[in-house]
Design a protein around this nucleic acid. Structure first.
Lengths: 159, 159
DNA sequence: TGTGAAAACCTACTACA
DNA sequence: TGTAGTAGGTTTTCACA
């Protein structure tokens, strides 16, 4: 049924449970999915090894952590020799929290977070001055309605 | 120095450490920031209460979890009576993993994830048919260069 | 808010099916 | 891969500064 996925349904439920609460005891997760503590442990270990789970983490509220400004910047390359260096340069900027290569009018879409508006302005200037960048369009976020939703693979994988 | 932030530098370092590894023992975190295990515990507890830390979690690789398709959909309202219902409708869709109210040509920017291209197509159709939505523009992600970066508040808060 | 120590709890290993 | 049992380590709580 899920042959082309690298995880089975039990894995999906374990991942959903830990995504919602990364400290949920394995015994509880096991009770939910019908496995022993040790079996859950074994599966989590393998999911980590295979890179399905990247790491245990926390979800922090960007605003309350001092990162009040968010923007999405679409970036277009100039087609010249420097194009391959654009992404690496963007990656080095800690304010760039996401970077996607995209289809359409632009080549990249970057999600930016800063502590204050001025830092956003500075960063946009920096991005525009990267060799190989032809044009950028910024979309400033006014408020965030939804973000960092815990994964619910049940809802997503079985539509 | 950080009067307008709700956290101090020690909190910031604790958050950065746990963002990188949500299971890092409090004793280790404490050694790093110069506090006892119990003091770190107390601070984490308060950060959770204040909503600075939303929850403990895991970071999963969307691809390996079966969510191979990502798109950003910009949405424009029609200015009519239904406008206030657009965001709530979008929130109910599990494929919408982020939703931002934005400045500029469009009103919302949604980040979408699905298991296959067809599901993306279906969802776009669904979004377009929400009453109050005038127009959408989709940007399909070809590959993701960077995502779910662990928070490094040191780099971000002191530019 | 912080510290140190004790108790309760969880993880992670071992042996085995 | 799975289960059960266990040793070691972590979280959590306590009295106190």
């Amino acid at each position: 049924m899920q042959a082309n996925f690298q995880i089975d349904d039990v894995d999906a439920r374990i991942i959903s449970a830990l995504s919602l609460d990364g400290r949920r005891p394995y015994a509880e997760v096991g009770a939910e999915v019908g496995l022993s503590t040790a079996a859950v442990h074994e599966r989590v270990k393998k999911l980590l090894e295979r890179g399905v789970i990247r790491r245990f983490s926390i979800s922090a509220d960007p605003e309350r952590v001092g990162l009040s400004f968010t923007a999405f910047v679409a970036i277009r390359n100039d087609g010249g020799a420097h194009c391959r260096e654009v992404a690496p340069r963007l990656r080095t900027m800690p304010e760039v929290v996401e970077l996607h290569s995209v289809a359409g009018e632009y080549d990249f879409l970057a999600k930016i977070r800063t502590t204050h508006a001025r830092a956003l302005e500075d960063l946009l200037f920096q991005i525009k001055s990267i060799p190989g960048v032809a044009r950028t369009t910024s979309t400033v976020v006014l408020s965030t309605e939804l973000e960092d939703r815990p994964l619910d693979l049940g809802a997503l994988r079985n539509p």
